[in-house]
Every structure is written in C-alpha cells, then in structure tokens.
C-alpha cells in the first residue's frame, strides 16, 4: 500500500521532536504488524522508537481509544479524521484535556480492507462513505487537504433495512444477535465506550445476564448502540473487530441518521457540542403530538 507512505517522514520528524524536547511522554501511532503487511498501534516513549512509526492505508485502528487510559500523561497522537472526531467527543465529555494531547492530524486517503496477513485493494465501507478527509482537530497537519469533500453520506443500507417488514427485521436481527459470543471486542475498540464498569457487566441491577443467549445478547447490542446515539463518530472499528461479523454499523448508522434528521446533529465536530440527548429545545415537536 503506497498511498500515505510519503507522510511518514513528517510524522516521524514531528514525533521525534516532541519526544526529544520532552513536550510529550508518549506518541501513539502505528507500526507494522508482525505479518509485515498490516498495521498495529505503537506507543513510542523514546526518540529511538520513532523510526518504527508508519502511516499508510492499513492504519485502521482508532487510536483515540487509548487517550482515556493515558489521561494522566501528556501524549501525542496520530489521528485520522475519524479519530479526530473521537478526540472531540472525548473533549466534549471531559474525558481528556486538550492541553495534554498533541494531535498529529493526518489527511486520510481511506483505509483498505485487510485482515492479518492479507491486504485487499478495496477501501473499507466506512471510508467509501467518508465525508471528512481532513482532521477536525489537530496541532500539526500532515498531508494536503483535498480541495473539496464528497457530498453528504447516503444511508442506502439503513433505508433498505427500514423498508423491511417487522417480521423480516426481527428475524434478521435475531439471527445476527444469536451469533454474538459477547467477547465485547466491539466495546474495547470503541473510543466512546470508556465506562469503567460497563452496564453489561453490572450485577446489580442485572440488565444483561451472564449467559450467552439471544435475550441477553439483544440487550447488549441494543443498549450498546443506544449509548452511542449522538456520540458514535462512525469509525466503524466495532464492526471491523467483530469476530462473528455482526453488521454493527447498520445499528450505529440508523441512530446516526435519525440523530441527524431529528436534531440536526453530528457528533465529534466540535469539542464544545452538547450531546443531543443531554439537551433539548422547547419548541421542537420531534413528530410527537402536544
């Protein structure tokens, strides 16, 4: 994968400068995975680590996920546009402090479909729909922002699902949720899922029983998605890491679409935005009678 490789020297130089000067304790970026093809997160603490940093179209992870764990130190982070929206989300929800995060923003060429040991040549679905190729928040920008961003995201997949009958929808989701092994990889990959004690693992009240059964899986998936309503920044990492290929984006994107239509809101666009479910407008009707 060649696209994006030319950005590497700039990222490395900036990372080295930050670590050498002591401006940050750690640089979170990507390095080549052990398959020699794909990427994995790198935590560079020493200037010497910097030469491992890479950036190309295999750098899938949303590294903003790690910022909450690093909130007690000062870090730099390599951020694609979707990662930058996650940074804004974390700032808005007071999980991180802006002055302790140095954002090396990367103009993103889109990430390709890849699994360990294998790289495809197709862009990931999320990248095909992407509206932002330039990060929304950064201290240092790498790459040339495109002159024009593609038009608004279509929701063909969601509309298709909406058009199905209740019975079809029910059996579709029942089948999806039945496959879930509740490994919670979706949660671990998500930058918005940072609760120290997830509702799904609480014993009192017991919302989600410990058994892996359709009913418990259903609660997990519905509430996971709803807890991200108006917060999900569409990096789609949850779906990418799902070992049983549950189409989680179909849940997330439904809520994203409705949040946009009902409240005119997209998450992660600014660090000051109040999430739509924590506010209201008196005059709005939202399709309900008076």
């Amino acid at each position: 994968m060649q696209e994006g490789l030319d950005l590497m020297p700039q990222i490395r130089d900036k990372a080295r400068e930050l670590l050498t000067s002591g401006a940050v304790d750690c640089v979170i970026g990507y390095e080549r995975a052990s398959d020699g093809l794909t990427a994995r997160p790198l935590f560079a603490y020493e200037p010497n680590d910097v030469d491992k940093l890479i950036f190309d179209q295999t750098c899938a992870h949303n590294l903003a996920r790690f910022l909450v764990n690093k909130r007690d130190s000062t870090v730099a982070i390599v951020a694609k546009p979707c990662d930058s929206r996650a940074i804004n989300l974390l700032l808005a929800e007071k999980q991180i402090q802006r002055e302790r995060v140095y954002v090396i923003g990367v103009v993103c060429p889109g990430i390709v479909e890849a699994t360990w040991g294998q790289i495809g040549d197709k862009l990931q679905a999320r990248c095909q729909l992407c509206r932002e190729h330039t990060p929304l928040v950064y201290d240092f920008l790498v790459g040339e922002p495109p002159a024009e961003e593609p038009p608004a995201e279509p929701y063909h997949d969601v509309a298709e699902m909406e058009a199905k009958s209740a019975a079809e929808k029910h059996s579709f989701w029942a089948e999806q949720f039945a496959r879930c092994i509740r490994c919670y990889a979706c949660r671990q990959a998500c930058p918005g899922c940072y609760c120290t004690e997830c509702f799904a693992e609480q014993l009192d009240p017991l919302w989600v029983g410990i058994r892996i059964a359709p009913m418990e899986n259903e609660v997990w998936h519905i509430i996971r998605a709803f807890h991200l309503a108006g917060r999900c920044i569409a990096c789609n990492e949850c779906e990418r890491v799902c070992p049983v290929n549950i189409p989680l984006s179909l849940l997330n994107r439904k809520l994203e679409k409705d949040v946009l239509e009902l409240f005119g809101f997209r998450s992660g666009l600014s660090a000051e935005a109040v999430p739509p479910l924590a506010t209201f407008k008196k005059e709005e009707r939202l399709g309900m009678s008076e």
């Binding site: 029910h170 059996s171 519905i222 409705d258 949040v259 409240f263 479910l277 407008k281 939202l286």
Partner: peptide, 22 residues
Amino acid sequence: EGNYYTRRRFALFHPFLEYLGI
C-alpha cells in the same frame, strides 16, 4: 424540563425499536 428529555430520548429510541423489528 424532564419531559423535554423524554421527548428527545424516545423520539430516537422509538424508531430504533421499530428498526429492530418491534
């Protein structure tokens, strides 16, 4: 203002339930 939040929350949750087959 409690019910204003109710309105928002379920204006969003209701179509989501429908989407899931309820």
